[in-house]
Write a protein that binds this DNA or RNA. Sequence first.
DNA 1: CAGATAACGATCAATGTCAATCAGAAATTT
DNA 2: AAATTTCTGATTGACATTGATCGTTATCTG
Lengths: 252, 252
Amino acid sequence: MKDDRLSAIRHYLFEKTSASIHEIAEAVGASLPTVRRDLLTLETEGAVRRTHGGARIADSAGIEAAFEVREQTCIAAKRAIGLAAYTDLSPDMSVFLDAGTTVLQVARRIRMNPLPLSVFTNCLAVAQVLTDIRDVSVTLLGGRLRSRNASVLGALAERMLEQLWFDQLFLGASTIGDDGCTYTMDEDEARLNETMITRAARQVTRLDERLDLITDDSLAAPWLDKLAQAGCQTRTVSLDPEEAAEQGEDAA
Amino acid sequence: MKDDRLSAIRHYLFEKTSASIHEIAEAVGASLPTVRRDLLTLETEGAVRRTHGGARIADSAGIEAAFEVREQTCIAAKRAIGLAAYTDLSPDMSVFLDAGTTVLQVARRIRMNPLPLSVFTNCLAVAQVLTDIRDVSVTLLGGRLRSRNASVLGALAERMLEQLWFDQLFLGASTIGDDGCTYTMDEDEARLNETMITRAARQVTRLDERLDLITDDSLAAPWLDKLAQAGCQTRTVSLDPEEAAEQGEDAA
DNA sequence: CAGATAACGATCAATGTCAATCAGAAATTT
DNA sequence: AAATTTCTGATTGACATTGATCGTTATCTG
């Protein structure tokens, strides 16, 4: 399928930064002319920059590709977490969805089986997923745009958050650190998350058993204290064996 | 019977993200033409996005789809207006971009030829276009999400706007009424625009000669007064003959 | 500077997919 | 119970996509 191939080429180029036509053709299992055509379409989309004998990833497309890659890592675990979180929802609740690929799965689940909700979020991707759903009103936090995870941050966001109140907060594991424990939380994000917790009547943070990198993250310890102090109960979702198997090294 | 199959296809696509027609047909136990018909209905509902050989889940059906149809009407005029507005920009300005397809062209122009800017907007599409551009900081207004034009509205947005200040305001013609003069402004949007004007040091509203529907719109008169009172100068951009010709009946 | 090599673009045959029509089956209505 | 409506499945022609080939152009090297 063409769409899958385009996506594969983009992800491959994101990994390698640049590659030759032959390399791409072998990677995606297509012929050379097809790869050329695909690179043409990707170039018109602005995703890649074509060179003689190969192609490079476009600078502007890097963030987007990185987001897609992060979204696909541990996808089964994230979906399972999303389902578990979804079951906690009741009609006419007001919930806050944090920015992150794991929480995004909760949003997708809501889109799949809608129920009347008041949703607050600081993530543009979450807002997009939840647009145009009956009985789901979405309120987006304002603030400085952070392209890395399509979220808003900053003093404006915190001030706006202080005017809100919600029944339940879904603080994604990505906030603490997922996708290979390379994620370091910045100051603004930490403060915003702190404010979130103060505004939530009940906090739920789900920790997958395989995301044990919390112990690796120096920022995790104070957060765990904060969450425990706020009365957070950590739960574990179990993955089906084949789902866990097909993830393999993603745990990293 | 049919509803069950539609639901099954939706769930299957939700799990797999994308799948081929054959795959879906086998999964739900139906023939290929039936699957095609089902995908057609699901596409009109906005649940899936059909591709050649298969279909994908519609992640952000609302924003892009709602915009794309309107974005193509009077595209040449909007581009010309966007270029004219772009020339008014100077480095290190702080500007506000309103929600609308015309203003979106200004954002696209900025992305093509970036310059250091502080951009404020209440439009998710504008924010997306301007993400990850060097020296362009984007601040998004918060508030209740309005799916029609991917913007935020409401008291929260107004309150946030009152904390901001910008040199120049691009209040799109779409705010007053474009795309066939069927657009009626709602109360929240009117109040938000009013607040915008009070926060702008200089307001620029561009009116295309062909968008004469202002005289048809009862809401236009008070707005014109307001704009004139604020010192707005209305200008006209001239379209190249062929560009005007290729638009034809779009004027409506 | 010139030859050689590789890549690019275009064209063509082949495969697969899409859309529309038609016949049959199932469900609902009368 | 009969008839109408709706839905399903198959077929056909049109279209898109893919892969191979060829002529041209660009790049590399001696």
